[in-house]
Design a binder for these strands. Structure first.
Lengths: 232, 232
DNA sequence: ATCATCAAACTAGTATACAAGTTCACAGGT
DNA sequence: ACCTGTGAACTTGTATACTAGTTTGATGAT
């Protein structure tokens, strides 16, 4: 039995596969399904209340982004946090987000900025009230919107599988770090777009996205059982 | 009945899903399954000789990279060539490959270049003998190896779904264009790595990957039925 | 006590039956 | 002739039965 597993209501137009995916992602990111932990298709099926088919389809998708691992005839597991993989994901995200912010800084209608500005204001609110989960969601939303207004939604979707790896790490460090910098970073990024300054934008994005790397070592020593042993 | 569909032998350790994926990708890229054409899970199942389950799993995966489209309870289709999507894929690929070639140029053991050099020699051979399909495969292989030696395999895999969109286009133009430039481009890229010159590498990669864009308009007018109508 | 063997209880992969929704053509009334 | 409704033949989504391979643990021989 999966103890702390978070279950949500199923949306009306949601297929079983989509529903299961949503549930699994949330529980993996929030570490209710522990890194390295075993997953049983049958168990999940009865737990979530659907058959094995949508469970399988969701697991296959998650295995594509290496967030779960499927060993045929043996079992499926939530992937341990793989440092090399996180670095590769970081490289991918950094590269793409810097390219996208440059695009955004090269010219953007005022109107498209409205959403971003509203988002940042909400972030400030959540930080002041210590609502960390909501802040995390707005953070992701901010970046997603950047891809949307530059017409790069598909790229974002492909990347978002990788982002799960980050979100897991962020869950681990929520209690220990000050989140004000998230808002400040996003403000700097917004400024760069307003000033149409790609270099400033790229710099601000780089600083924002590489901030995490700093405290990984601390988290690693705090939760060694969640990590794959480092480097080859 | 799917008329010209190419069937291959199933590898011994290959799961049904992997097998079907391999078959479908090849037939989509080679346009045996026409852009816009309808796909029936049942039809494919009897054609390929497996049940609907592995077919479905393969189709779901392909729909993630937008190379097929699934409309629940209605039907599945091979996606029309979507110009916007191809541009987005182009942006993604260009961005990532330039970042990777810079990495490669910043330092690489001699030994890791062996594979690339061998690859280019084979390319030259295939060009001289007009073996276009084999050249295409070596071209992809060349880029894949670049990601491998820089430790970015997962990124390549994520990208490779997008690359299918390119490969389809390349199939359309094979009869009309001279392929010698492919080899020349790759030689220039190799040179840049040897000289440890990231700027030259990025330049060469950019030129190589943007060469296609030039003749798209011609292909588009030649096979209008394969394309989605342009821009919004 | 220790090791080998074998069976039972798992695993994921696949096939198939069924459910639910869509399309389309044909029949029948106007 | 034309519109309308109805049902059969599709579609994909889901549940379930079955296959084949792996693990595990108990049993029995040494």
């Amino acid at each position: 039995m999966v103890q702390g597993m978070i279950l949500r209501e199923r949306y009306s137009r949601e297929t079983g596969r989509e529903y299961v995916l949503r549930i699994l992602k949330e529980n993996i990111v929030r570490l209710e399904l522990e890194p390295g932990g075993r997953i049983s298709e049958n168990e999940l099926a009865s737990e979530i209340g659907v058959s094995r088919t949508p469970i399988r389809e969701a697991l296959i998708e998650l295995s594509k982004s290496k967030i779960v691992e499927i060993y045929p005839q043996k079992g499926s597991y939530v992937s341990l946090i793989d440092w090399d993989l996180v670095e590769e994901a970081q490289f991918m995200r950094l590269t793409l987000e810097k390219a996208v912010i440059r695009l955004a800084c090269e010219g953007m209608e005022e109107e498209k900025l409205k959403g971003l500005e509203k988002n940042v204001k909400l972030q400030q609110f959540y930080v002041e009230n210590g609502e960390t989960d909501e802040l995390l969601e707005m953070d992701n939303q901010f970046h997603k919107e950047l891809f949307e207004i530059t017409n790069k939604v598909h790229i974002y979707k492909l990347m978002s599988g990788m982002i799960l790896h980050f979100d897991r790490l962020r869950t681990l460090r929520t209690k220990t770090v000050d989140n004000q910098y998230v808002v400040d970073d996003h403000m700097a990024i917004l400024d760069a777009i307003r000033m149409k300054d790609p270099d400033k934008g790229e710099y601000a994005m780089d600083r924002h996205l590489t901030r995490h790397v700093i405290d990984e070592e601390i988290v690693r020593s705090k939760f060694p059982q969640y990590f794959k042993s480092k480097k080859s």
